[in-house]
Amino acid sequence: MSAPLRTLGRITGAPTRLVLLPGAHMNAADFVSAGFFSAITRRRLPLDLLAVDLDLAMISSGKALPALQEEILSPARAQGCRNLWLGGISLGGLLALCQQADSPGSVDGLCLLAPYPGSRLTADAIADAGGLAHWQPSAEQLADCE
């Protein structure tokens, strides 16, 4: 069994909760130093903000999203969180998109900041095909977790 996810933030019972996922080589404390938490306080927004630490090993192993669902998202719903949003920067944005794709309806919205779009190989294949509407992914491309 792996260690529980480490988070920063506080839950006050606000009607909306935003769970933030960091980019590669970032951690939850980077959201604090970037002013995310102080901006919520300064503006007196009715929003609970929770930043999650996800390391690259956990992401690469495929354990990050199941842990996020089990430890953060499902308990938030069980505690009565009415509006649950998932956000992320870069790789965290990609993970938020993957969570929504894997578990539709597990969150009510996404807040993506410069989301990592996936590997250049996949992006180039989509562009070469003339866009998503024309792209027919190969089995290898479908197996790529990005």
Results as ranks from 00 to 15, higher is better:
M1P: 06
M1I: 04
M1T: 05
L5A: 04
R6W: 09
R6P: 02
T7V: 10
T12I: 03
A14I: 04
A14K: 04
P15E: 04
T16C: 05
R17S: 04
R17N: 01
L18K: 02
L20C: 04
L21W: 02
L21T: 03
G23S: 03
G23P: 02
A24V: 04
H25D: 02
H25E: 05
M26C: 07
M26P: 02
D30V: 01
D30Y: 02
S33A: 12
G35T: 03
F36T: 04
F36C: 11
F37N: 11
A39R: 10
R42P: 00
R42Q: 13
L45S: 04
L47H: 09
D48Q: 08
L49S: 08
V52F: 07
D53V: 11
D53Y: 13
L54D: 06
A57I: 00
A57C: 00
M58G: 15
M58K: 05
I59A: 05
I59E: 07
I59H: 07
I59F: 08
S60D: 13
S60L: 09
S60P: 00
S61E: 14
S61P: 07
S61C: 08
S61A: 15
K63R: 14
A67E: 13
L68F: 05
L68Y: 03
Q69M: 14
Q69I: 12
E70N: 15
E70H: 15
I72Q: 10
I72N: 08
A76C: 14
R77M: 12
A78N: 11
C81T: 15
N83P: 01
N83F: 13
N83E: 14
N83H: 15
L84H: 01
L84R: 08
S90H: 10
L91I: 01
G92Y: 06
G93C: 11
G93A: 10
L94T: 06
L94F: 12
L95M: 15
A96K: 00
A96G: 08
Q100D: 02
A101Q: 15
D102W: 12
S103C: 13
G105K: 12
G105T: 09
V107N: 05
D108G: 13
C111D: 00
L113Y: 12
A114W: 01
P115D: 03
Y116Q: 03
P117T: 08
P117R: 09
P117A: 10
S119G: 11
S119D: 02
S119C: 04
T122P: 00
D124S: 12
D124V: 06
A125E: 02
I126P: 06
D128R: 14
G130V: 04
G131W: 07
L132S: 06
A133R: 07
H134W: 01
Q136R: 14
Q136S: 11
P137F: 06
P137E: 08
S138Q: 10
S138L: 13
A139M: 12
E140A: 14
E140G: 14
L142N: 10
L142Y: 00
D144T: 06
C145T: 08
C145H: 12
E146F: 13
